[in-house]
Design a binder for these strands. Structure first.
Length: 121
DNA sequence: AATGTGACGAGCG
DNA sequence: ACGCTCGCCACAT
């Protein structure tokens, strides 16, 4: 049940990103216990089901730019969603210094976040 | 089975 | 700032 649990965790972490804040793929990967497998996060989001609704728009690249290609249809949607949450997006880019999710353990202590998210152990 | 790809990220020159 | 390489890992050919 490893693989499935991992995927579920990715979605759970993304779902835990507060409105008005953003997180990078790598950040999510780390929080989900995936280490450096940031691509896995991207893949999970892409394959993620329409329901339950997931705040995928709060996941950006480590440099603050959107993950989607500027020509992608979802690009504009993502920007719009972010802005409607109060996140200023300039030229497909977000100021991480201000909007990056710095909640529980988003820096290093993923163990605590785990408990916070899952209410386990 | 092997190879290439991708909503990524960190290092290095 | 820029381009390249490697790590990671599910999926498509």
């Amino acid at each position: 049940m490893q693989q499935q649990a991992t995927d579920a965790k990715i979605l759970q972490v993304v779902a835990a990103i507060p409105s008005g804040k953003v997180a990078s793929y790598g950040q999510v990967a780390r929080l989900a216990g995936l280490g450096r497998a940031a691509r896995r996060v991207a893949a999970a989001l892409r394959r993620a089901p329409a329901e339950p609704p997931l705040p995928w728009h709060r996941v950006l690249r480590s440099d603050g730019r959107l993950g989607l290609p500027p020509a992608s249809p979802g690009f504009v949607e993502q920007i719009q969603r972010l802005q409607s949450e109060g996140v200023r997006v300039t030229d497909g880019r977000v100021d991480l210094r201000e909007y990056q999710w710095t909640g529980a353990g988003s820096g290093t202590a993923s163990e605590d976040l785990d408990a916070l998210l899952w209410h386990l152990e």
